[in-house]
């Protein structure tokens, strides 16, 4: 047992044993876990970017549609006022011609445009603005009155013009910063998207932690192997 020739062989055998299957499997396992962690990390990062992009697109789309309906309503109102002014000067202009709608048709078009603000998908957002629904109802009621008065023998266009002008001023006073008022509503609309995004963000943090830990373990393992090998080589040289 004390034979000096046998002693180094036992050491070499131990060194080999140190690099034997279980330890290597462990290293490979760690490497696999590291790769898995990295792929989840990259996947989560990609999903976050994707959802971010989707939320941005949705907001842009909401903005475009909401601004469109608001501009259309204002345009219809401007055209109606113009038609009323013309009718006030000359009742003959009430009729339809090749290029424009008749006054009763314009009243209906304006009604439809303002109704768009409180119905359909846009309404889901616009109705969250305080007081907007009541105000729109006021305009729609006035348009109904105007429509029924058009059947009178001598409609009082001027009175309707004055009232519409007053409503327009009220609208301008209360809702000039409508786009700014809509911003928090857009954020609220994207709530579901943001929830999924936060889920992926948590996954990103967890996987990044996991990756760092695994990276450390793998480095430590590799360092140990290299150390054992260098020890073994050193012993061989000494022999």
């Amino acid at each position: 047992m004390n034979d000096p020739l046998i002693e180094p062989q036992t050491e070499t055998h131990n060194t080999h044993k140190a690099l034997s299957a279980p330890k290597l499997y462990w290293i490979w396992g760690m490497l696999f876990m590291l790769l898995l962690g990295l792929s989840i990390f990259i996947g989560s990062a990609w999903m976050i970017l994707n959802y971010q992009q989707q939320a941005h697109q949705d907001t842009q789309s909401y903005k475009a549609y909401d601004h469109h309906v608001m501009l259309q309503a204002q345009l219809a109102m401007a055209r109606l006022e113009y038609r009323l002014q013309l009718a006030n000067l000359d009742p003959e202009t009430v009729a339809e011609d090749k290029t424009r709608a008749s006054l009763p048709q314009q009243v209906e078009i304006t009604w439809s445009r303002f109704n768009d603000l409180i119905s359909g998908q846009n309404a889901q957002r616009l109705l969250k603005i305080k007081g907007l629904k009541t105000f729109i109802r006021k305009i729609l009621t006035e348009l109904d009155l105007l429509e029924s008065s058009l059947h009178d023998s001598e409609p009082d266009y001027e009175q309707h013009l004055l009232y519409l002008d007053q409503l327009k001023k009220e609208f301008a006073a209360d809702y000039t910063n409508l786009p700014a008022q809509l911003l928090p509503i857009y954020k609220d609309e994207n709530k579901a998207l943001r929830e999924v995004q936060s889920y992926y963000f948590k996954a990103l943090i967890l996987t990044s932690l996991l990756v760092f830990v695994l990276y450390g373990i793998v480095l430590f393992g590799i360092f140990n192997i290299l150390k054992t090998r260098s020890q073994y080589t050193h012993e061989r040289i000494e022999e």
Binding site: Y65, D116, S119, G120, Q121, N122, A123
Partner: peptide, 13 residues
């Protein structure tokens, strides 16, 4: 001949 389309739109409920 009348055709029918059953759908949702952005402008209706």
């Amino acid at each position: 001949p009348m055709q029918t389309i059953k759908t949702t739109t952005r402008w209706t409920n």
